[in-house]
Design a protein around this nucleic acid. Structure first.
Length: 154
DNA sequence: GCCAACGTTGGC
DNA sequence: GCCAACGTTGGC
């Protein structure tokens, strides 16, 4: 069982959208490193920190879990989709996605600023300068600390 | 296979 | 809206 962090812009898809949908497919990933994490390493039952990027403030909003292992991202060969990539076809899919389901929304949103101030978390990839990867592995101890923190009553 | 140019991400 | 940092593309 592994732990991850995924980024999403709340203006396009927030933790509240996921809470409402209960489940969604994580399409539109068009970066090879992120794709490889999904395709090669994400497994059903893995837990995911749901990060709000390009937000005010940015930070971790809750938790999701992987409920379907990687399969071809069919939006990649749809010319009408904004994530269309002509290199990808149904017979030779280039991009993949997983399904995520809602687990919990944090009672205590953890801002990027708060993450930075916690020295126990300083090795987290999301805190590294210039780190743009939208899907990142997270250490178990970091995940557990953040989960506990996030569920604290404020 | 190098690397400049370009496009994107995402904090600020 | 700016722009640094990065990934990707394409000319050579």
């Amino acid at each position: 069982m592994a732990y991850w962090l995924i980024k999403s812009e709340p203006s396009s898809y927030s933790i509240d959208h996921l809470k409402n949908d209960k489940k969604t497919f994580w399409n539109g990933v068009r970066n090879f490193q992120a794709r490889n994490f999904m395709k090669d390493e994400m497994r059903v039952g893995d837990l995911v920190l749901f990060y709000h990027s390009n937000a005010e403030p940015p930070g971790i909003a809750g938790i999701a879990s992987v409920c379907k292992q990687a399969y071809p991202d069919f939006t990649s060969w749809d010319p009408k989709d904004k994530h269309y990539d002509p290199r990808s076809t149904p017979t030779k899919p280039l991009w993949h996605m997983v399904d995520l389901k809602f687990v919990e929304k944090f009672s205590h949103f953890i801002s990027l600023d708060q993450l930075r101030k916690n020295s126990a978390l300083k090795d987290m990839l999301v805190l590294k300068k210039g780190m743009r990867l939208s899907i990142q592995p997270v250490k178990k101890e970091h995940f557990e600390m953040i989960r506990q923190w996030g569920m604290e009553t404020v």
